[in-house]
Structures are given as structure tokens and as C-alpha cells.
């Protein structure tokens, strides 16, 4: 078997979808804030990768699909969902009832949705995907300095929204 064959054989498209689909859907969800939209975004990205799988599988297919997710989400946002920002009231009883955990997650989701496009992208890629600032800069086509400043501003907004309240202890304990 040649090297080409080996690369070709390693990750059939269907296997990739099974193996990495859920992780990619989580990333898509952090962009869209809606699981159905996330699945829609994921399938759109996979459909774009599908016809050229033979080529991209030789390199880094997951990076390719993730890049398409970011770009597709960005184009959706520009095209029709610029005004889509959930505006419901923040829960006012965080941690005080049986639904506290769900409310806390909802608060984070809403706070994320209120972030501007670029800041949201920086937050997801940097702090969910654990990409380096250089990698985030590359995927978004901005400078490393801009990544830093956007991350800083995003953190400030999330802080102002109390979105991170209650997560400090979990983080300190190493939990996710």
C-alpha cells in the first residue's frame, strides 16, 4: 500500500462523521445557541466537505470542517440572523431552585449570544476548542493582538453579565 493509499484509507467520510460529529456539533452549538441550528450548521459544513473528501482527508479533515463551520456560521449571521439575539430576561434566581443548573447554563448561552460575532468566535475557538491565539487569529483572519483584545472585551462582557458566576469553583477543581 502506498502512502497515498494509507492516507486515503485512514478516515472514510462516514467514519469521520460518526467519530467527530458530536464534538463538532458542540462547537456549532456554541456559535448558534440552538441545537437544531447547530445540527443544520454541522450538516451544511459536512456537505461541503463531502465532495472533496478524498483531497482534504490527506491533510487535517477536522480542521477543514471546523473552518467551514466558522465560515458558514459567519455567512448565516451576516445574511439573515444579524438581528437574532435572544432578549429574554436573565434568570433572577440562579442557584436557588431545582432548575438552577439549567438556568446557569441558559445565562451563559444568552450571554454568549449577546457577544458580537467576532468576540463570540474568539471565545468559542480559544476557550472551548483550546486553540492558541495564533490559531484563532489564523482562522478568523485577524491579528493575534486583535484576538487578545477581543477575548479581553468578551470576558469583560461576560463578567458584566454574571455569566461566569458559579464556575470559578468548578474550574479551580479542574472540573468541566
Amino acid at each position: 500500500m502506498t502512502d497515498h493509499d494509507a492516507a486515503h484509507v485512514v478516515v472514510p467520510f462516514a467514519d469521520f462523521v460518526v467519530a467527530r460529529g458530536q464534538a463538532l456539533q458542540r462547537t456549532a452549538y456554541l456559535f448558534t445557541g440552538d441545537w437544531l441550528l447547530a445540527e443544520d450548521l454541522l450538516q451544511t459544513a459536512l456537505a461541503r466537505a463531502y465532495p472533496r473528501w478524498d483531497r482534504i482527508v490527506r491533510d487535517d479533515p477536522e480542521a477543514y470542517v471546523r473552518r467551514v463551520i466558522v465560515n458558514t456560521w459567519s455567512s448565516w449571521w451576516r445574511r439573515k440572523w444579524r438581528g437574532e439575539t435572544p432578549t429574554g430576561q436573565l434568570p433572577d434566581r440562579v442557584g436557588s431552585d431545582p432548575y438552577a443548573e439549567a438556568d446557569r447554563r441558559d445565562a451563559v448561552r444568552r450571554a454568549l449570544a449577546r457577544l458580537p460575532l467576532r468576540q463570540r468566535a474568539v471565545v468559542v475557538l480559544r476557550f472551548h476548542e483550546d486553540m492558541s491565539e495564533t490559531q484563532v487569529a489564523a482562522i478568523l483572519g485577524i491579528s493575534v493582538g486583535t484576538v487578545k483584545s477581543q477575548a479581553s472585551k468578551a470576558l469583560a462582557k461576560l463578567r458584566a453579565d454574571d455569566a461566569l458566576t458559579g464556575y470559578g469553583a468548578a474550574a479551580a477543581a479542574g472540573g468541566e
Binding site: 446557569r104 476557550f127 472551548h128
Partner: peptide
């Protein structure tokens, strides 16, 4: 604070639904 954000993002995705059986067909 960044670790807290990391935890928060992971927490937000806890309600992920199971993989749809027709994902590949949808693609």
C-alpha cells in the same frame, strides 16, 4: 477567569442531544 469560561462553555453543551440517526443521510 478563563478557566471558568472554559468550564462554562463545557457546561453549556451538557444538554447535547444524541447523535441523530440520519446525520449522514442529511449530509
Amino acid at each position: 477567569e478563563e478557566q471558568a469560561l472554559h468550564a462554562a462553555l463545557a457546561d453549556v453543551t451538557l444538554g447535547q442531544p444524541p447523535m441523530p440517526v440520519d446525520r449522514m443521510a442529511g449530509v
